[in-house]
Design a protein around this nucleic acid. Structure first.
Length: 246
DNA sequence: CGAATTTGACCTCA
DNA sequence: TGAGGTCAAATTCG
């Protein structure tokens, strides 16, 4: 990646962060005119596009379809059938209990992805063996933004849990267990007991299916399984944003 | 004790 | 050959 692009991305990153924060505040303010919120969303989307352009690289510059779909489908076992990609962006972290959807995901692997700052985590339905549920998902943070995640679902839930929640069939959900948000940097194995937070699915307008979001808010980094998991699990729950059927 | 997570190794594909 | 995806044994946690 070029330095210029990196610098530009950093700048845009800051812009996006501001846009997002503004939007969050507007959301909190019931009286906020819809136009203002739309503007914020548009601004965020625009910055996002710019960032993508700035950070675009030939081979999975760190996010986007290159990674999410590149090999996943080609790899062979599960075809592209039922593949759904979502991008999740959260505005803040404070307390996540209520976000659990009831569907269970079990982590079965994690991989460092070339060009990506963070590893990709692989999950599959907990009932895969007991009920033959083939649903799987991959979660990865495209950039340094702890509030942005790229999630790709493969297959559909056919387990009992999924049947109970028709609304979430396609967009699976999250692990039932209590979720804690690692607001602590990877270098700190100790769990942030008091720093747990709640997600506010706020801006989710990234177009294109991927993008960068401002970072720096949280120091959470991937590389530490449990913490990452929690992140991923929670995120998967938050997405309502854009969905792409691939 | 059972279930979930972690982590390294193995397999497949471009 | 390199990279991504999955498996499975070991470890940890509830």
């Amino acid at each position: 990646m070029e330095d210029t692009a990196a610098t530009l991305a950093t700048e845009l990153d800051g812009l996006l962060a501001m846009a997002r924060e503004l939007e969050v505040r507007l959301e909190g303010d019931q009286g906020a005119p819809g136009t203002a919120r739309e503007l914020c969303a548009a601004l965020a989307a625009s910055v996002d596009r710019a960032m993508r352009l700035a950070g675009s690289s030939p081979r999975g510059g760190g996010d986007g379809e290159g990674n999410a779909t590149g090999r996943a489908s080609v790899s062979g076992r599960k075809a592209a059938a039922g593949k759904v990609r979502r991008q999740v962006r959260v505005a803040s972290v404070t307390d996540v209990g209520p976000l659990n959807d009831g569907l269970s995901w079990r982590k079965y692997g994690q991989k460092d992805i070339l060009g990506a700052p963070y590893p990709r985590a692989y999950f599959r339905c907990t009932h895969r063996h007991s009920q033959g549920c083939q649903a799987t998902k991959q979660v990865q943070r495209p950039h340094a933004d702890p509030l942005l995640f790229d999630v790709v679902y493969h297959g559909a839930h056919i387990c009992a849990q999924a049947a109970v929640r028709p609304e979430q069939q396609s967009p699976p959900a999250v692990a039932p267990e209590g979720i804690q948000w690692p607001v602590t940097p990877p270098s700190f194995p100790s769990p942030p007991a008091g720093t747990v937070g709640e997600y506010y699915p706020s801006v989710c307008q990234l177009d294109g299916g991927y993008g960068y979001a401002a970072g720096g808010g949280l120091g959470a980094d991937m590389g530490f399984g449990s913490q990452q998991d929690e992140w991923f699990l929670n995120l998967s729950d938050v997405f309502q944003p854009e969905v792409q059927n691939l």
